[in-house]
């Protein structure tokens, strides 16, 4: 027996794909290919190596940017969360960055750093970093006071309190920040490829649009959304493996 939840997931996937297929057959627009056509292009592009080639390009700025954002962001977040002065100094910057449409900086980044990898990495970083920093610092600040008191009263050193109490206690919210950061990083990576110079998946999307090969365009978009979802699930898996006891759902984002 398949579980009800899984069965419904399959049902809803089938419903959505058939809706797509039907809408494509009518067609609702000349630029709306059917589901089957799009899937055919999808597997064709995987088969002839085009997809692999494209993702080699796309993943470069994405992975570099996400790694920089994660390390720098968590480090800065810890620092801000632990120290009142740095909290006062840096928090407002990241709060403004979090609310602001940072994508508007892209034309400037292109002027300053050209159209190469550096600009694209920067785009990923400015999109991904604020939420990672803010989540980390907030989580550190919100470590339950009684945990810290417990550590002190059992003679834990400052380093032990940080490593054995504050970081594990903050980890669910830090991971939530990482997930949000990675998802923002994907937005940035694609934006960079569409706006700065068409490379990788952005190139497939732009090129196939220009020659009206819509199935390929939809297939490329489908692939990047699929990849983002898989990537985020991977992070979730990583979290459950790293912090087993933390699975009690006491943090929500």
């Amino acid at each position: 027996m398949i579980k009800r939840a899984n069965l419904l997931k399959i049902v809803s996937a089938v419903v959505l794909c058939s809706a797509w297929e039907i809408a494509g057959r009518i067609p609702v627009s000349y630029a709306f290919p059917t589901f089957l056509d799009s899937m055919r292009s999808f597997f064709e592009m995987i088969g002839n190596g085009m997809m692999l080639e494209a993702y080699k390009e796309t993943l470069q700025p994405l992975v570099i940017g996400v790694l920089i954002s994660a390390f720098l962001g968590i480090g800065l977040g810890l620092w801000i969360g632990l120290n009142n002065f740095f909290d006062w100094l840096f928090s407002p910057i990241f709060i403004v960055m979090q609310a602001a449409p940072l994508a508007a900086l892209i034309p400037l980044l292109v002027l300053a750093y050209g159209i190469g990898l550096t600009s694209k990495v920067m785009v990923v970083c400015i999109m991904a970093m604020p939420v990672i920093v803010l989540n980390t610092s907030g989580a550190v600040r919100n470590t339950p006071e009684s945990f810290k008191e417990m550590g002190k009263s059992f003679l834990a050193s400052r380093a032990s309190i940080l490593l054995r109490i504050i970081i594990p206690a903050a980890s669910p919210v830090i991971f939530a920040g990482l997930r949000l950061g990675v998802s923002a990083g994907f937005i940035g990576a694609i934006l960079a490829e569409l706006k700065i110079t068409p490379t990788g998946v952005g190139d497939i999307i732009t090129y196939s649009r220009s020659i009206a090969d819509y199935p390929s365009m939809y297939a490329a978009i489908f692939s990047i959304i699929l990849l983002a979802v898989l990537f985020l699930n991977l992070i979730e898996k990583l979290e459950t493996v790293l912090f087993k006891g933390n699975q009690r759902g006491y943090v929500s984002d």
Binding site: P144, S146, F147, E149, M150, A156, S157, S160, A169
Partner: peptide
């Protein structure tokens, strides 16, 4: 110290929680 809200580390087993003071 025995805490009102227990102050047990949710990510650590009972054994690790009890041993925390000794570990420190």
């Amino acid at each position: 110290f025995v805490f009102q809200d227990f102050a047990l580390l949710p990510w650590a087993t009972v054994l690790k929680n009890v041993a925390f003071g000794l570990q420190m």
